[in-house]
Each structure stands twice: as structure tokens, then as C-alpha cells.
Nucleic acid binder design. Sequence first.
DNA 1: GCTTCTCAATACTGGCCATTGTTGAGAAGC
DNA 2: GCTTCTCAACAATGGCCAGTATTGAGAAGC
Lengths: 158, 158
Amino acid sequence: MPVPVRSPAGSPEDLRSSLHGRGQRLTPQRQRVLSLFERLGEGRHLSAEEVHQRLLQAEERVSLATVYRTLRLLSSMGMLQELELPEGGRRFELGGDHHRDHHHLVCVRCGCTEEFENPAVLAAGEAAASLHGFRLLECVLNVRALCPRCAQAEPNAT
Amino acid sequence: MPVPVRSPAGSPEDLRSSLHGRGQRLTPQRQRVLSLFERLGEGRHLSAEEVHQRLLQAEERVSLATVYRTLRLLSSMGMLQELELPEGGRRFELGGDHHRDHHHLVCVRCGCTEEFENPAVLAAGEAAASLHGFRLLECVLNVRALCPRCAQAEPNAT
DNA sequence: GCTTCTCAATACTGGCCATTGTTGAGAAGC
DNA sequence: GCTTCTCAACAATGGCCAGTATTGAGAAGC
């Protein structure tokens, strides 16, 4: 039974540590597969063969067998979600808790975090993306701050 | 005593790579000094002795000589700014380009980035901070996206 | 046809070690 | 008094290596 993976497919480093936690390794192939889904965005679902083809097109060769293995692995880690189609054949898409915008309040002193949402942030991200011609995938706002407890411990009032 | 959950995103890794780029090392002492200034926020300026004392209070022992060396180092790297007081004695504060909100558009495919600003983001951060009783230090919005060139290369319309 | 298995070749990791940048105390300089 | 220098002790890194998870091709299973 796989370990509970809390953080969605975020940074490359997240994937690495998730894998290491299970004594597994981060390989270019695994990165390529996950990265492909991240580039596609959330709604998209692909079959193993499609993943294989797309990676080939992107000049990121990964053998079909490895694609299958990796899809299964990433699913078991919760980073991908498996869809069983009635017509036969399976599809995969980005894991469920992948909000396009999820934000964190991080205490720089003790490291504790709070999560929050705010549509205004996504709007700002979309505005900037559109201004520069980018296609937005995900917005992550990190607010570096001091939590109530640590703020009290710090002997200074700015 | 607070329990560290995960390292605050932002500068820990930045500092490391900046140092490595110069063939220098990331040590706990350097982290402590920089971290102290980050906790203080932007307006604050401290003398070497004050830094030393505050670190002692925080049970983060760093020798005075090292404090001096580190302050000089961080200044030369632009992470701190040196203020020469007319009365004699120098003070240090967080480097200038440390905006309380600076945001990035990052292409997840080629890695290129664009920077932008948007007061709405800072507002959102402040709202969240205030809601949870946090004292905001800095807002960093990371928009994961595809740049125009890479968006074109990706053969899919979501 | 889609998916998994086999097995030799490959390569990611963690551990260990030498290199050399850093630190701590106290002396020395200004 | 504030800041820098000296030097032995310390420790962050990079390189190297063995251990072993992973990959690629093709065969085999469903």
C-alpha cells in the first residue's frame, strides 16, 4: 500500500522526496511522464500509448514498458489518477487535489503552514499570463510570514 | 516549541546556489543570520553586535567574528545592504530588491521566466495573513505556465 | 490490441573520503 | 569600542564506488 502523498505534483523536488520516502528513485523518464501531464493541464487524460507517442514527439524517448510502469507508479502515489473506460483501456490524468490555485501561508521561523484560497490571485496570474502570452497551468502563492506564536516570540515591532 | 514541518519556500535554496556559484558553502551560521533578517522584515536594520545578541537569544549561537564575516559576505552578495551611520558604526538591513511582492511567470517546459507585479496579490496575502493572525513578510506568486513558444510546440488544445 | 514480464545493461543513490572553505576564541589593529 | 586577523578544529562539498532500483526490447500473457 502506497504512502499517503499530500503534496500534489508540484516541483521536481517534491517528486524526488516522495519517491525517496519509498526507497525509489527519481529518473529522467519519471520526470518526463509527470511533466507531460503537468504541461497538459488538469482536464486532460491520456492512455499509455498516447503518453508514449507524445513523449516521442517531444524528443523525450521513454520505452512503452516504462510508460506503463511509471503510470502505475505515479497513480499509486496519488500524483496521477486512473480512469477505467467502459470500452476497455485505461486513461490517466493529473491527481485530484490539483487545484489551479492553492496558496500557503508559511511561517519562516517554525515552518508551520496554513492553506488558503483566493480567486483574486488566480485572476492576477491569468492577467499576467495573458499579458505575456503564456498559457497558465497553475498558480501558487507563497506568503512568507510569522505565525502568531512566533511573532510573539520575536522581540521586535517593525 | 514549534515543530518544523517543511522548510519555508523562498530563499533557503537561493542562498545555497548563490554561494555555490562563488565556490562558497552554505553553513548553518549563514542561514541563521539571513534568516534573522528575514524574520525581522524589511525596514529593520541591525548592527553586528545586535545580530549577535539576537541570535544568542534565539539559542542560535554564532560567534561575533562569524557574524561580521557573514554580514560582509551577504552584503557583497547583495542580500543585505550596508548602512554607514554618521555617528560611526554600521548597520545592515535586507537587500534592496527585496520587494514584499514579486511574482514570476515560469514556463514549465523551457524554464524561461517573466517577472511581474500586481498589488492584488499582496492584498490577498495580507488578507490571508491577517485572517490567520500571521504577520506578513513577503508574498511570492509563482505562476506555472507555458511560454508562447512552448505552448505552440505542445500539440494540444486543452 | 493492450498490458505485463524477463533479463541484461544502465544509472540513481547513499556512504565514505579527501579537499578546502568556515568557524570560534582571542589577539591585534584602528 | 568596533572590526579584522590568526590559526587550529570543524564541517560542507564534490568525487568516487558499490548496491540496487530502473530501463529498454522483445517475448509472453490476457
